[in-house]
């Protein structure tokens, strides 16, 4: 069984409180609609950067939780960030990995290793405090309160279907530099 990314994002949106969120690639259009104009900055235009962007925010703002909505193809582009995050040990960082086995945006070509790539093992091997995989929305629902309050860094591998939209089918949104400035302004205090 797999979850739809939109269902996952709606569930997280309802529970996240004042957490900073970093969507990337196929979670970006959906998150834009689900959580408009809030404490988010989308990683689009530098694929693979969501985890490092989230790390910087988590280190700068230890008083807030930082939620990364990464993709499997995206994380493979900066896989070393698992070790960098683990080395920094930010307690406030949750790394959600939306796993669909393909590069959806560019035409759904299979990622290297497809669905067999085990990011849970990788995160644990890198030194994350915890990592686990979820297949069902009901599992996520029951574990989400703990995910959003426990100590990180935590990686949650989410087996998902393809998103309804990608940055190619639903382009637009606020330009990255405006998102940067808007979130910086909101984090003034």
């Amino acid at each position: 069984m797999s979850m739809s990314p939109e269902e996952v994002l709606r569930l997280i949106a309802a529970e996240r409180g004042n957490a900073i969120c970093i969507p990337t690639m196929t979670t970006a259009p959906a998150w834009r609609a689900i959580a408009p104009d809030d404490l988010s900055v989308a990683c689009v235009g530098f694929m693979g950067g969501a985890s490092a962007l989230g790390l910087g925010l988590a280190l700068a703002r230890p008083d807030r939780r930082v939620l990364i909505f990464d993709g499997d193809g995206s994380l493979l582009m900066q896989l070393g960030s698992l070790a960098t995050i683990a080395g920094a040990q930010p307690r406030n960082l949750v790394h959600f990995l939306f796993k669909n086995g393909v590069y959806h945006t560019s035409g759904a070509q299979e990622i290297p290793g497809g669905l067999t790539v085990d990011f849970v093992v990788m995160a644990k091997g890198a030194g994350y405090r915890d990592a686990f995989a979820l297949h069902e929305l009901s599992e996520l629902k029951s574990r989400l309160p703990r995910i959003l309050t426990g100590d990180g860094p935590l990686l949650v591998e989410l087996f998902t279907t393809l998103a309804a939209e990608t940055p190619m089918t639903s382009p637009g949104g606020t330009p990255f530099h405006e998102q940067v400035q808007a979130l910086r302004d909101k984090l003034r205090t």
């Binding site: 790390l55 900066q78 940067v180 910086r184 984090l187």
Partner: peptide
């Protein structure tokens, strides 16, 4: 790549 992107996160968070 990571270093520059972490820098962006720190900048947004005013560090």
């Amino acid at each position: 790549d990571e270093a520059a992107t972490v820098a962006a996160g720190l900048y947004i968070g005013r560090e």
